[in-house]
Nucleic acid binder design. Structure first.
Lengths: 204, 204
DNA sequence: ACCTGAACACCGTTCAAGT
DNA sequence: ACCTGAACACCGTTCAAGT
């Protein structure tokens, strides 16, 4: 027998509305673009009044910013997973880092675009810039490790990482539908990473 | 004496409404972001009814797409100007091309973002992709010239150009407010171009 | 604290009508 | 052809009120 007081999941409006809104917003984003996200529509889907989101987000932009923060956090987690294994060689680690970068962008294309769009807003919250900085910190960290083991040239690791990430980021932005002239972005990224690794080798 | 029938410029609604809408939309875009563009507000500014834009653009997205096309056309013109002088060396020409790329992005940041956002839409019009392709054709052309004069390694010039443009495009997307850790994007771009030129030199 | 409905000032888009 | 006002179905945001 089912105890009504326990088993029936009271819909939302019980503490997880914020998370539910973010999840629904991301679904709407990936389904039809940023323009598709409507606070009223999200509220309808979740069965709450259209003023409820106000409790968790000051306005629509605040929800989009929170979505961007969530994106950067998961992006950071993906990059972290890619470089977790400390027994890999530098070459393997940088390759895995680059692949994780491109994989994330291809898996969540509209979220990825939103993340950078939000980050570029003049009045973007500090939290957003910090989340982005944390994700982009994995590049310099990996470069520094490569330098420590003598596999990477000297120089500011942040600058070296910027060069590497820029090449991948640009590829993602320029290529349409994950391809450039029929060649898969994965393949192009792999080529860029390989060339990058060669370029980073210290001259003997 | 002034002939009323000739000298008084009848405001808009006389053939140039389309151009006037695009201009006003771009002004609104650079002022406050894409969300700031409202067909009704643009119409108010231009002194026409709010249904007049319909004559020139099927819907709001069509206006945004046209704005993106206009952006790619001016981007192409800027890249064309940068490589017009055929007496420059390959090194100078590629440097000027890269600088023109970054200059345009920094001068029209929101338009530049809109251009790529529009290009990535699944149902983007053919015209938009063509305008983008024309702009991005300057890279391969310059690479091919470098190969002809023996200053650039062999290989598909489109692939070589993609690598170069990707690095610049990524720099633009990753850096915030035209800077990365306090260093100007111009300077970073110059470094990337120089490294690129070195990397493209044929091995003797 | 958290949620509600009503109200306000906007939208984009459609349509029948004017010149 | 080009433009118009009225109407429709939405928005985001605010506010006084409920529990």
């Amino acid at each position: 027998m089912i105890d009504q007081g326990m088993a029936i999941p009271r819909p939302y409006h019980h503490g997880n509305l914020r998370a539910a809104l973010l999840q629904a917003a991301e679904k709407a984003l990936e389904a039809g673009g940023i323009q598709q996200i409507s606070l009223r529509e999200l509220s309808r889907e979740l069965g709450v009044s259209h003023t409820s989101p106000r409790r968790h987000f000051a306005d629509k932009q605040a929800l989009l910013d929170a979505l961007a923060v969530s994106g950067f956090e998961r992006f950071e987690a993906a990059l972290s997973r890619a470089t977790r294994r400390k027994d890999h060689s530098f070459k393997t680690r940088l390759t895995r880092l680059g692949q994780a970068y491109v994989d994330f962008a291809l898996k969540h294309p509209l979220l990825f675009a939103l993340m950078f769009e939000a980050k570029h807003r003049p009045d973007a919250p500090r939290e957003l810039q910090q989340a982005a900085d944390k994700a982009f910190g994995h590049g310099p960290a990996t470069m520094a490790e490569g330098q420590a083991s003598g596999e990477v040239v000297r120089g500011d690791p942040a600058r070296l990482a910027l060069g590497a990430f820029s090449a991948l980021q640009g590829l993602i932005t320029i290529s349409t539908k994950g391809k450039f002239k029929g060649v898969d972005l994965d393949t192009l990224a792999r080529e860029i990473i390989d060339r990058m690794i060669t370029g980073l080798q210290p001259r003997k």
